[in-house]
Design a binder for these strands. Structure first.
Lengths: 192, 192, 192, 192
DNA sequence: CATGAATGAGGATTCATTCAT
DNA sequence: GATGAATGAATCCTCATTCAT
């Protein structure tokens, strides 16, 4: 009886479905989603939800973790392939798109930033670190001002993701990203 | 609450105390404060709270309205006394200070932006309008780019106010305000 | 606003009713009574129960405490008025009657003895102390053997109270009390 | 479970293991053990548990039955080899030891006595009958008072078995057994 | 047969709101 | 008018039992 036998196929599927349902529920109804709703949204009973996630909080945390994982990886990937400023721009737009396709990032970001619960310390730190890497690269290249930290930019991104199915929000979000990018270029030593 | 009969002095005092207590409670405990706590904070019983405010939502709305009134008035006052770009800068810093002195603006803004509940439509619209007046003045003067709406800037301000007693958040908030301001100047026809 | 204004008449009445209902519920259904049942039994809603008692456990504890208070007081009263051995005999019979009139003592005793939860340490200790006083008096008078502690007698009393609406249980309980009493006299220095 | 086909060796082994695990679980955690825990303790999955026992209750009943079988057999064995009063004394001490060696008797007895569920009627009756045989023998020999029934003594034994890993409980249990024995001798026609 | 994932009724607790005092 | 006790729907979580793999 190995401690971690590979999860049964249907169980893994349910786990994924639950995570998706939770993401969707966050998008639809904000942060105070009810476990019953998530379960119903995934087409399973609450018991199943609790088999996969210790508590409501644990599920929420997991949703965030996966979102953050994805984004951090993207940030590093962009840095490998593009010039720093361009990587930064693309990352901000990625954030917008990420929110757009309903991946739940908007709520994630919002919660990560709006709370100081230790539960999200990790997510916050990793996001801030990813942003710091982008900013530092730009700063080293002289195309981004050097006095803004990843943590600060993370806060500033709130507006990009704080949206709720408003008409035309995508263009709005892109414009905000553009504003911040212009602001970051403003004091650079080698203005692009 | 018939307009005809003026409210008794103690009743009016209770009303004000309740509004203050609610503001303070929002600051201390986020948005999901309990009515009991607000009432206790005001030194009255829940029954008294309900005499003055139809529902919990009505009280919250009222708190927001007064915050927004104050800020909108400030925006117009600044426009009267300063050049548009300067007025905009001062307004952004005012927002930061407003949050700083515990006036509850941060939570207000957050809620106004993060919800699309019709309850806050009014507050949202008035805030956006105030910002639009500031932006339009700058745009007319050629010191602010002309393609950003008040509604968009309102969203972008989320990061300025989304803070929770973090060490050094004031400097962070000011820096974000600065970033946005620089971004807004970037495409202006007459760069300052 | 004095910290402890005397409780309103109807509130006090509800509190008492709830305690009675809880006692009755314990008698009827053992220790795993449901809060809803207790509340219904008292003719109030669960919310009222929770206004008076922090948690289910707190209510149970309170029931026990009042039962134990009553019995300990009785023990001391008997010692004042009767010779030690007689006081002991009367106390044991009192225990039987106490169970008989549905005061819930049986379940109380059972729970007190069958658990080592710190919640009941106090109740256990006070009961044991009361019994020790009775035994010591008898021992000093030479009518009760001197090597049995109150704690041990408390355990031995389990059988007196462990009963569930059996036909003829009162006589049975009295007989058990008699057996123990005879056992306690057996090694006395001055057999009665 | 048709009697016709003998149970497979591994199936029988699982059944035994489950009974042991249940006994142990009762000892460790009281009466409200969870089926999952029992199954885990036996190293099998719940499904296997349910293959062997219709319901949780059925398993519990089975545990009790085997305990009671063992004790009743012991009672009769003692009567064959010792004088009635001696047999009774030894039986009471056996009960103590039985509890001591973790055979689960304490919980069994407790449950048998503390419930009037028809589920345990059988166990209760057989235990009472065994005690009655011991008492009757003593009564016939004139060394035990004749007016106490096995059922009553069964109830009185509660205190002997109601124990939870208390320091020094064995001596306490033996002393209680001694008290009861002395009480039973007290009114005998031929006091020992 | 064994496994352990899924079910879902049931139970404890919270809190906005009402209403007797 | 003020008080704070009572209400009860709503929510999170548990666990005996079933059933697909």
């Amino acid at each position: 009886m190995p401690t971690s036998r590979p999860m049964r196929a249907d169980a893994r599927r349910n786990r994924e479905t639950l995570l998706s349902a939770a993401r969707q529920a966050f998008l639809d109804g904000g942060a105070e989603v009810h476990v019953e709703d998530i379960a119903r949204g995934a087409g399973v009973a609450v018991g199943t939800l609790y088999r996969h996630f210790e508590t409501r909080e644990a599920l929420i945390e997991e949703v965030w973790r996966s979102e953050v994982d994805e984004l951090c990886a993207a940030a590093d990937g962009l840095l490998d392939r593009f010039a720093p400023l361009d990587a930064l721009r693309r990352f901000l737009l990625l954030l917008v798109d990420h929110s757009a396709v309903g991946k739940g990032m908007s709520v994630a970001l919002e919660s990560i930033m709006a709370t100081d619960s230790p539960v999200f310390d990790d997510a916050r730190t990793r996001m801030a670190d990813a942003l710091t890497r982008l900013l530092d690269a730009g700063s080293a290249a002289g195309t981004v001002r050097g006095d803004v930290t990843g943590a600060t930019l993370l806060r500033a991104l709130g507006g990009v993701c704080t949206l709720r199915a408003t008409e035309g929000w995508i263009d709005e979000a892109r414009q905000i990203a553009g504003l911040l990018l212009d602001g970051l270029r403003h004091g650079a030593t080698h203005p692009a």
